[in-house]
Each structure stands twice: as C-alpha cells, then as structure tokens.
Write a protein that binds this DNA or RNA. Sequence first.
DNA 1: CCTTTCCAACAAAACGTTTTGCATGTCCTG
DNA 2: CAGGACATGCAAAACGTTTTGTTGGAAAGG
Lengths: 367, 367
Amino acid sequence: MMAKVGIRDVSKAAGVSVTTVSHALSDVHQARVNPETRRHVQEVAARLGYAPNRLASGLRNQRSYLLGLVSDEIASTPFAGEMVLGAQDAAYERGWLIMLVDSGGNRALEERQVSTLLQHQVDGIVYAKMYHQRLTVPREITGVPVVLLDAEDLDGKVSSVAPDELAAARTAVKELIDAGHRRIGFVNQNEDIPATHGRLQGYHAALAEAGIEYDDDLVTFEVPDVSGGRDGALKLLSLPEPPTGLFCFRDPQALGAYEAAHSLGLRIPDDLSITSIDDFQIISEGLWPGLTTVALPHYEMGRWAVSRLLDEIEDPEKAKAPERLLFECPIVRRGSVAPPRSLSPSDSEQKDASRMNTLPPASEELA
Amino acid sequence: MMAKVGIRDVSKAAGVSVTTVSHALSDVHQARVNPETRRHVQEVAARLGYAPNRLASGLRNQRSYLLGLVSDEIASTPFAGEMVLGAQDAAYERGWLIMLVDSGGNRALEERQVSTLLQHQVDGIVYAKMYHQRLTVPREITGVPVVLLDAEDLDGKVSSVAPDELAAARTAVKELIDAGHRRIGFVNQNEDIPATHGRLQGYHAALAEAGIEYDDDLVTFEVPDVSGGRDGALKLLSLPEPPTGLFCFRDPQALGAYEAAHSLGLRIPDDLSITSIDDFQIISEGLWPGLTTVALPHYEMGRWAVSRLLDEIEDPEKAKAPERLLFECPIVRRGSVAPPRSLSPSDSEQKDASRMNTLPPASEELA
DNA sequence: CCTTTCCAACAAAACGTTTTGCATGTCCTG
DNA sequence: CAGGACATGCAAAACGTTTTGTTGGAAAGG
C-alpha cells in the first residue's frame, strides 16, 4: 500500500502550487483561482484520492472538528445508546466527529478524561448524565463551549436539555384518569433527584386537574428496578381500598408491577391498569399486554445538545445567552390501560381503539 | 479566560529553550537534560497548567492517539453500551481515545464515515457488528490496522473476536440436562447468521454427549424477539409429548416463553425449566424467577478488540499474524432451572442450591 | 501610449509540537 | 597538559495544511 497522498502530491500532479490546490478545493477561496484550473485541480485530486489531513488543518485553523461527549455511565445504560446516537448523528451531519468517554461515575477519572479531551483540542463538550440532575459544570472544563445533557446547570451559565418530568408524569397519570380511574397509585423511586420530585408534582397536578383528592397512602417510594416495582405494587394492591390504576416511576418497575399483579391473580388491563415512564422498548413492547408508557426522548435530546453546542461554537455570541430546554415526552399507547371494572362497557369504547396489539395466541387459557 | 498555554510559554517562564522543555517532559529524552532543570521545568509546566496540543504532536509524530469504532447499529442495541465501554476502557488505559460512528446499517453512509475517520488520522479501526457474522473488511478501510468485533473475516486477513456460539449453546443445554431433563425444546431464531447455526450445533452436541436422541419436532425457528419466544414456546408446549426444559436463542425470547408458560398455567421452574443466551440483565434479573442464561461477554470482547488493535499498532509485525478469537461465555445461574417433575426430590438437591433468589413476597397466592 | 485595475497564481509564514544535529563546556584519562 | 568522552543545552527543520502578501501580466481607462 502506497504512502498517503498529500496536498503536495496533488500540486505536483496538477502542475500548480499547493496554494492554488488549497484555494481550488476550498469553498471560501474559490475566487482566487481560474474556474478552469479549479476544475482541473479537483479532477486530479479526485483521481489521486486526496483527502486533507485534519490534524494539519486543525492545527492551522484552531478547529479540530472534534466534540467530546463526557458521561457518567451513559455507555452502560440501555438508553444511552439512543442519546449517543442522536449526538453522533447531529455532529456528523454538520461535519463533526464525537469522542466518547465514560467515567463510570468516578470523578478523578472523569477529570483526567476531560483533560485528555481538551488536549485533543475538542471544539466543545457535551456533559451528559444518566439520570436527570442539577449540577455545576466541573471546573476542569474550560475554554470550550459546554452543553448539559439530561442535566441542568445550577448556575444557569450553560445551555442544557432534559426531559420535562412534571409534564411526563402528568401525561401518564392523565391517561389513567381519562380511562375513568379515580383511585390511582404511584410507585415512585427513592432517590433524591429532580425526576423524583418532578414526577410527584406531575402526579399531583393531574389529580388536581381532575378534582381527585390526593391520598398519601397511594404513593410509595421504592428502588428504581424490577424488584422495587414488585414491592411497591404489592404494597398498594393490598390496601383496604386498592387502586385500579397504577403509575410507575419507570418501566422496569412496571415490569415488577405486572409480576405482582399476576401473582395476585389480577389481569392487566382488566383488573389493573398500568402506565409508566421510559418506553424501554424491550419491556414496553415485550410485556403482555404491551405497556402504555411515556417515552423519554433520548435520541432527540442527544441531537439537540450537539446541535446547540455547534451553534455556540460557530457563533460564540450564542454562548452568552444559554438556553435551558425541557423536552416534551410523548405517550406511547399499548395495551395496559382500560376502564376500571366498575364502569359500564360503553364507556370503554374509545379507549379500546388504542389497544392495538394482536391477541396473544393462548391468552384465553389463563386461569 | 486566558489563552491556552503552549510549550513556548513554559519555555519563557522557565528560562530555557522549547527543546529543553520538550525533552524535560518527555519520557524518552530525559537523558538530554539536567535532572535539576528537568525538575524545574516540570514544576513550571505544572504551575502554568501546560498540556501538550495533541493535534500538533500528532502531526509531528504521525500518530493521533485516536481510534475509530465503526458499527452498524451498535449504539442502538442494548448490549452495545457494554462493547463500547470495554473498548473505551482499554483504549483510555493505554492513552488512546475512541471516536464512535454508527451507520445504522447504511453502507454509503458507513463509507463516508470511515473516510472521515481516516481524515482524522485514526491510528486504527475497530469494525463492529451488532450480531456475530462473517464478512470481508470494506475496501475503504485502508492504511491502518483493523480488528473485527462480533464478526469474523472471511479472508482471514485481520484479527477478530466473537462469542463461541457453539460452546455457549452447549453450556445452556447442558444445564438443563444436568438437572435431569431429557426432553428439551429449542426456540431458535430464523435468520441466517452464524449464531443460528452455531447454537443449533451446540444444542446437538449437548444432546449427543448425554446420549439423548435428537427430535426434529423440538426445534422451532422464530423471530428473535419476545413475540417469537411466545409463539415458539406455545408451539413446543402443545406437542403431544411437550418438553420439560426449554432453551431459547436469546433472552427476549425467554421472556416470551415465560409469558407463554404463564398463559398455559405452567410454573417456572417447577413445570418448565428455561435457559437462554444473552444475560440481558433487565430481563434475566427482572423476571421472576430470575433467568438462568449464558452471558455474552460484550464488555470483554470490546476490551480485547481494542487491546489487540493497539498491539498491532505498536508492533506492525503482529498485524501479519492475525488472531481469531472465540470468547468463552459463562453461565449465570438464577432460578429458572429445576429438575423435571418426574424425578424424585432427592435428585434435585444439588440443583436447588443454585437457585438463590429470595422468594417473591406473594408468590404462594398464585393460582 | 501610459497608467490604473484586476485576475491568476505563487512564495512564505504560521499553527505547536518533536527530534536531529550541533555547540558549548566540564571532566576524565593518559 | 593535550585529547577525547560526556553532559547539557539550543537552533532549526519537519509534520500538512491555510492564509497573507506579493508579483507578473492582461485588460481597461484616460
């Protein structure tokens, strides 16, 4: 395999100076070269398969066309792929590439990673968190624009994007209310992050809008995984007056709630309706019936973060007026919501239309 | 914020030439500088917060310390995170950074992405696939070492790493056999990739080793997701002589099999034992009882791929003798395997020891 | 016919490093 | 005390681009 072809090779082959080659191939300096030579140079460059060395041009231009994506555990959580993909797509479309680092939550490591990124002269950094939280930008990130992903800046100095937790929860709860439920449980999670409080507020808001009185017994705080969902659901379902609808903090908990319901002999959605937040597809589509859940728009958030970052890189003025965005979260209707038993069948018709999954081959054999 | 500090700033502040600064900070040229000046320079450099510009040093050294990770849909599949993480960790530990691109399976896009990577002077490329397959390295990847991840090179020219499908399947089936099962169904998947054939061979091998005759009716080919698992399990379980143990191609299918079993009133593992391949934790840990499954070592494969790639970069001789590795896949025992009903309790004792999950709070209320 | 203007092309400097080769001066060795 | 060996430091070239400033000549204007 022959040595890499550089701009001098093209200049020699085309019989012009390197300056002219550069101008001919550049969008901004076309004017300085005769259209005919220009075409000739382009043709020669294409024939030789010339591709400019970005290290060299980056050095000269003080622009690397590299972005850093720093995260705590983004590469290990299932959604993370979506975020990264959104980021990568947005970057690539505008000519940038993304370098990914994942500290696994280790601050010291993160510090070294960021400094490595900076040594590579990244033009900007997306600082991402696995779960929506408020934080201050670490001090080692300096000299380049930053955008926060799934996080908010306590100082309000930098742009950020995160899901609108309150609205998402209100949507999920309203779905149950609209189906006719009045007694709605909430399996929340037990960590002190914005999502916990935001979704609780959303739960309150939805109830209040429907004129339903808040009942403290119907809210429980559990670990945010399958077992937490199982525990929480069992707790709420064994109340003297159990809920007919259940809102779970996130999909894995909903999976636990399904299991709890089955173990109690309750059928979903006939005996118990469930909604949740995540749209973790392997769960929401895999369960039977499918889980109606509010999707966290990870891909879109990733896209937005990079897109905003590039705006700030290309126009430094924009960095002075940071934008703080809360993303809308759309509901994905599957089969886990139906009117409560107490309602007449006629009330249920409009809702049934949204349960579109094909019937499970043998579900009628259920006890 | 002040301008970035370069090697000249250090040289001025320390009162020595840039040459000396470079030598003082370099591991290889320490000898050319007095230990005392060396310490002085290091101290000044640290005080100013000097960090070398990798673009510049890369240009000079013809080494970017950048690696490309090219994948089809790695960023969108849940395991992908593990692979990427393993790759990233291995790279970072040796001073490299990874640039991630994901073509979503679009060849034309992939071609452009690779050329962009090459323009950035990556020192090597990991070419990864979401599912284990055999392929030839795309021709646009040229001039740098390549390692295949979750794929094998048809031409045998480059190193590769992938799971040992046959051994993995044998392990999963053997787990059922060891528990005493003789009639074992296999819900395979219906795509023509190495995993399909390899796991079928593993299934055969395990049966043969145990002297169990192969029964064609016990193998079914389904779509590789939850619904496929449901369909396949229902099919096999409604045979005149149904299996007592079920091996699923992958975890989502096992989830479907759980659902099918429940819909038929069968209890796991008492009435039906299930094993699978993936260790997709949200499923395998989330299900009740936990799923005994053979883990695909994505993190380790990612690590190995990058580690090997760096070996080949640092010693070009190694690239001439490509290594083709099939990774061992360890079984993760949870609660989905028990002896078949027909066996006496005494036979089951040693196996019960491996079912370690705590009991579900209300499972005894099951019909 | 002599300026002026403009077009097309080029040489050279710069981006921030690393490394080669050279120039001191000191210390030994004989 | 002459000679070489060694220790320490520096100047300059090189990596592959982009851009600034300049030049020679042709076209245009008086």
